[in-house]
Design a protein around this nucleic acid. Structure first.
Lengths: 215, 215, 215, 215
DNA sequence: CATGAATGAGAATTCATTCAT
DNA sequence: TATGAATGAATTCTCATTCAT
């Protein structure tokens, strides 16, 4: 009997944990970290605020978990693309396209995960998360470099640029004034431009266009 | 007599105002907006908290001023580049190079100015500030498009990508663990890569490399 | 089990709410609204300042509740008198007597409720409260006017005069120096004079005593 | 020479003092004591805030002086009426009429002087001021009592009632919602009602109307 | 395990008063 | 005498975290 209950308990606990995380994630997606207070998270999860502390040591823990979970998911998607059989530039194009498209669906979440500041403990985790994303891009870029598709010099920097472009474009439409909810057609066009930009950015160039400019 | 005093006072006040702004700016540069509390600002400026309110209506005012002052300066620099006599791609290269180089000197500040969320009143100002930066890039891109140097399709999106790349790379070194203060040589190399990336991203391409990928 | 606790909790919370209100009321009764700060209220109630905000949205809420509760009570008393079977002048006499007698027990409270200025949100509630008092008097006066007992001309003005007299006499003993806590006998005498005055003020007069005086 | 300057100084100082008081009075008349901050007073008076402290020990001093000056003036007016050659009831009628009419012209000032709470030091002065007003009324009432015009019992209480009625009616129109700026005609009518009420309140009554009511 | 009442450390802002000039 | 910059105590409200039940 205590067996059975224990199992049920276990299950319920897992469930609670998930519900809390989901609740936190939704709140962040709506209003950023600043709207994800313990009280609000608990309420939305249908549990007491006290219970939250059974599952998480403190607020940061929750945020960290939401963060890493979300990024982990994106990471897998990107990784799958990186592991596919396309050419490097095709992979890169697809990676950027996919990431941006997905992120555009909840830009506030994307912004919070990538940029919104919180305390140091989370910042650390965020860094790791971002590294994952960059790692996927890195992999694709490295492959392209090796097989001669890409012509950039510094792998890491190129990856930063790609990640920078593809995250920035997502959070920009967040702007309060500019409530341009673009339609699907434009969205597709928009996303393609970005991917094109990123691919172009790393392709082999005929002649070296880089300019010598002294500051 | 009251002449001289007035002048001295005037000077001292100007100085106070500057000191407070500087203090705020430094605090932001160290720990972001969240560390720029009135008390802290005042203390660092060597004045009482009450005095701060002689010079600024409220906290937001201070932050806004720091923000707009900083961005305004960068804007002018970019604008000068945009107005110079180089080719569009040279300008773009120089713009990115300059911006990144400068921003690398206080990445936390750059981060706060570009990304850290604050209350609505500041957000509005920040939006305007960011627009300025993008506007400069826009101008260069538009020119290059017209004279056939650049081959992107959507001006606005291209600008977003450039700004995204050039701001993201700056905040990345922020991460807590990786305190790699790279030396000047690497910094130059780093910056050049980024500019190269951005220029490549918008250049005319021989064949269309963009790939048709269905999701 | 969770049954019992809930009930106990419920009770304790109700009690807390009441304690806070009582505490506020007592502070007001001692030193007026200006002495009823959150900190002081909480301390006197034996709770933390934060807890106060579990029960009330903000300070104004508390004051409003104290105000309206107190006035509501007086209003009911006056209303009962107005609804009784006495003659209008008997009712008026009784109303004034009762009000003044009760108010004399905590004149500072009476003063604050009737006169002490506060922010707009409370002012609005106070206005409503005062209206209630006046309304009771109005009712009695109207009745007396109709059945020929009273001879005033303007109902509203007469009510103002009555309310003015009966509230002012209460706050007068407030003055700091003259701490004359008169005995019960004098109090009764005092109260009767006031009621007499008010009744006389609205009674039918034999000849018109009003005098033509040019300013 | 130092003679002359001293005289000029003296004069200027007197003037400053007056200006400050006037400024305070005006501010109070507009927004009550709460709007009469040192800074605001000084500004309106065209002097520095520091200078205010040359003429007054502290803020309370100023308010006290405004208060007593204003009341003193009203007192004289009432006193003149009390000293005139009319009958007591004519005097009373006139006194009330005059007071209310004057007060209606700046009800906020009247309210502040009579009711708005401030710190204890002022409260004391306010009491004295109010006493002056009551004293005038007292005098008229006493006279009427002696010569048989008036029939009240307790002089002091009757005076309180009169003062209560005549001050309360003034502050009532202050109410925010009820912005009835009555015209001159109604004002006259209004004022007369009040005076009538007060006179009736203290007149000899044919039969004793007072009712025996046990609490 | 679950609850949610209770805590209390902050953080922004105001304003009488002082004092160097 | 006159200035007004400078001070800092005081006050409201928020929210992560604890703990009795």
């Amino acid at each position: 009997m205590s067996y059975k209950r224990s199992a049920l308990m276990q299950e319920r606990m897992e469930q609670n944990r998930e519900t809390i995380l989901l609740s936190a994630r939704e709140l962040i997606a709506q209003g950023g970290f600043k709207d994800a207070q313990i009280q609000a998270i608990a309420e939305r999860a249908g549990v007491s605020s006290g219970l939250v502390y059974r599952y998480f040591d403190n607020k940061s823990q929750i945020l960290i978990e939401v963060l890493s979970e979300a990024i982990q998911y994106e990471f897998q998607i990107l990784n799958n693309i990186a592991a596919s059989n396309f050419s490097a530039q095709e992979k890169l194009h697809k990676a950027v396209t996919t990431f941006v498209k997905r992120a555009l669906n909840s830009p506030q979440l994307a912004y919070s995960l990538m940029f919104e500041p919180v305390d140091a403990s989370i910042e650390h985790e965020r860094f790791r998360s971002k590294q994952l994303i960059k790692q996927s891009i890195n992999q694709i870029l490295a492959e392209g470099k090796i097989n001669g598709e890409f012509g950039f010099e510094d792998l890491n920097t190129a990856a930063l640029c790609v990640v920078g472009a593809m995250t920035f474009v997502v959070i920009e439409p967040l702007n309060p004034s500019k409530n341009v909810r673009f339609d699907q057609a434009y969205k597709d066009y928009f996303v393609k431009q970005i991917a094109d930009f990123c691919v172009s950015g790393v392709l082999i160039k005929e002649e070296n266009h880089s300019v010598n400019i002294q500051k």
